[in-house]
């Protein structure tokens, strides 16, 4: 199928001599263009699931497919290429490079593409304008507010025009106003540009922004109400 298919996935973590199973036999599908919010208590494995979908961690058992590509069978370098082409990541604490300006942070993923310097610059300008950051493009992250930094993070996630956006607590470090701006942005990206978005959050308001909410608890999914 198109979209994301998670089949019978198991993930364990080793803590000293003990092995803790985060989830086992987890199965779910995410359709292309969907906007899914995953909620649940701390330690339920929400971020782990996001890492598995994004190909930055591997399941101990089961398969994860993205548009017929089986992530668990890819080599490290193939996964890196796949991530660069298909996935944009938005993090709770932005994870911007502190020594790079806003425009340089947005341009960073484009260094992996075959775009010319001019094409890269044009795309960065478009993205920063779209996110209302045109006048902040020469600013370092330390010179931006939390909301502005998160918008730079979103611009970076969109830079290589990925189909999938993975957001890990994107409003967790923001005040209500900035959080609302970011959520509005994500909704626009989903409805206007058709991006598939998977968002992990503790924030009920953020979860309600999604088309679909899934509660992950004790290794199982419980479908909550739709937005």
């Amino acid at each position: 199928m198109d979209g994301i298919l998670i089949s019978n996935v198991r993930k364990d973590y080793r803590l000293g001599r003990n092995t803790v199973t985060i989830f086992s036999d987890l199965t779910m599908t995410i359709a292309p263009g969907d906007f899914v919010a995953i909620v649940g208590p701390s330690g339920s494995g929400k971020s782990t699931l996001l890492n598995l979908i994004g190909g930055i961690d591997r399941p101990d058992q089961g398969e994860i497919d993205f548009e017929h590509a089986r992530l668990s069978r890819m080599s490290e370098s193939a996964l890196a290429r796949w991530r660069a082409a298909n996935v944009g990541f938005v993090f709770q604490f932005y994870n911007l490079m502190p020594m790079l300006t806003a425009e340089q942070n947005v341009e960073l993923p484009l260094l992996l593409t075959s775009l010319s310097a001019r094409q890269r610059r044009e795309r960065v300008e478009t993205l920063l304008s779209m996110l209302g950051l045109a006048d902040r493009r020469r600013h370092l992250p330390s010179e931006l507010s939390g909301g502005q930094q998160q918008r730079v993070g979103i611009a970076r996630a969109l830079a290589s025009d990925p189909k999938l956006l993975l957001c890990d607590e994107p409003t967790g470090d923001l005040d209500r106003e900035s959080a609302d701006e970011v959520l509005t942005m994500l909704r626009i990206l989903n409805t206007e540009l058709g991006k598939t978005i998977v968002m992990v959050t503790h924030d009920d308001a953020a979860a309600r922004s999604a088309r679909r909410q899934l509660r992950l608890d004790k290794g199982k999914f419980i479908e909550a109400e739709a937005a």
């Binding site: 994004g54 991530r83 660069a84 994870n95 993923p109």
Partner: peptide, 14 residues
Amino acid sequence: TKEIGLLKVLGFSR
């Protein structure tokens, strides 16, 4: 380390 992790997440090679 965190930045190196980020570069890996973005798809940069080792």
